[in-house]
Structures are given as structure tokens and as C-alpha cells.
Amino acid sequence: MTEVQERSGAPHTLPDHDRSAVTPTMPRKPIFGLRTPVGRPQRVTSAVAVWALFFGVWMLASASGLVNELLVPAPQQVFATTWDLFAHRGFGSDVLISIGRVVVAFAMACAVAIPLGVMMGSFPAVEAFFNPFVSAWRYLPAPSFIPILLMWFGTGEAPKLALLFIGVIFFLITLIMDHTKNVREELVETALTLGAKRATVVRKVIFPAVLPDVVVAMRQMLAMAWTYLVIAEIVASTTGIGAMMMRARRFLKTDEILAGIIVIGALGLLFDLLFALIYRWAFPYLRTQR
């Protein structure tokens, strides 16, 4: 988080944050301005255009017979299949199972990582104990645990949750610890000179100061949780989005596989948006700083 260097003019006027209001209307900006911010209309148009191009090329390739129809079904067919999966074949419950797995495992990881990360970032003694352990585990790819997890937990929900948990928690702890260390020393010292005890400093200053960064870290790691979910479901599951895709493969239903990919992408986007909303809602005091 960068601190905005404000002009401190007359002490009784609020500084104006809206710099753009000051810029006079330019004669005409070039479309490819070097490091010039792009206006909203151009941004929206560009975003739509890149996807239109993608689907356009895909449709064209399918229609012209350039690609094998069996391996690459036309986009309209994929969307029809997606609809059919939800409407008639109970794909909704697979999606809900997948979401449930991500949410439960991710919540468990956060419940451990947030307190531990904040403590490690606040007390070097705690860091000295846990960090050698945590940083070693971070370099072990979580999927390498799948065989042993299957042997320990069988094929129920436990191995999937365990994989997601292992895959996310060590990164989450490290990120939160680093953010906590970056809480400015002056804030801590201010609290101490106001008479705060160590525990009070952690609860009332360090934790609220780092919380916005914790939410950002959660947002990043949730994306990773989705990745591990799909791996877990593809390797060892009969339910969930990944399992549906593996079933489809056996029957050469490429349209269903692609439908699964689209749904996973859409869910990821949705959760990301959710976190962005939480961030805006929970930290109104940050809005003027951006």
C-alpha cells in the first residue's frame, strides 16, 4: 500500500482527490498513447473485442472444418451442452459439491494461517520456530501427496479437503507473515507509548493494519485452491466438476469437458469478484487512498 503524499495547504480544506477533474479536455488522444491511461469506453470495447475475436476464430475454424469436430466442438454446441448439463442432468449438484469443497478447505486453511501468520509476523520468536517448517513445506508440490492421502483417508471427502488444505496453507501463512512484518514500526511504537501491552498492540493495531492485505492474500490463494480442487477431482473423485469432466472423456464428450472448463472459469471469476466486493465493503477508509 502506498501512502499518498498529499499537499497540506490550508489546514481546514480537504485536499481534492479527483485530479482528473482538473485535466482540461484534450483535443484528441491517440488510441495507442504511450503509458496513457485508457478511457472507460475504450476499455470496455477492447475487453469485448478480444473475446469476440476468440469465439469468432473458434466458430470459423469449426464451421470451415479446419479442426476435427469431435475434438473441438463449435462454441455454440458447448454452450448448448452447458445449459443441458445444468437443466437436465443434475450438473448443478456437482458444481455445489465442488464449491463446498473449496469453501470448507479454504476456510480451514484461513482459520489456521491468519492467526499463525500474524503471530509469526509480530513475534520473531514465533517466526524462528515455525518458519523453518513452513518454508520447507512450501516447496513440496501438494499433488505429490495424493497417493498417500488416498491411502490414509480413502476416497471420501477427506483426501480432497486435505489436498486443498496442504496446497494453500503454507503459502497463505508466508504471505500473511510478510504483510504483518510490513506494518509500519511507528504504528507499533505509537501504541506502546500510549500504554498498550504487547497483546493489545497485536490485537488493536497490527491485526487491523494488516487485515486489508490479508484479504488480498486470501483472494490470491483462493485461485490456487480452485486449481488443486480440479486436480483432486480429476484424480480421485466420482463427484464434482472435475469428476464429470473425466467421465465425459471416457465417452469422447469433448463438449462436456469444455463446458466444465467454462464453468470452472466462471466460478473463479465469480469468487474473485466476491472478494473484491468484500474488500470494498470492509475497508471503506482505503477508498480515498487509491
Binding site: L187, L211, Y285
Partner: peptide, 12 residues
């Protein structure tokens, strides 16, 4: 009590 050069307001 101490006042620092850097801003120490609790932003939240």
C-alpha cells in the same frame, strides 16, 4: 506520549 515525524494515524 510520543508524536513521530511519519504519520501514525490508525487508518481504520
Amino acid at each position: 506520549g510520543m508524536v513521530f515525524q511519519a504519520y501514525t494515524s490508525f487508518d481504520w
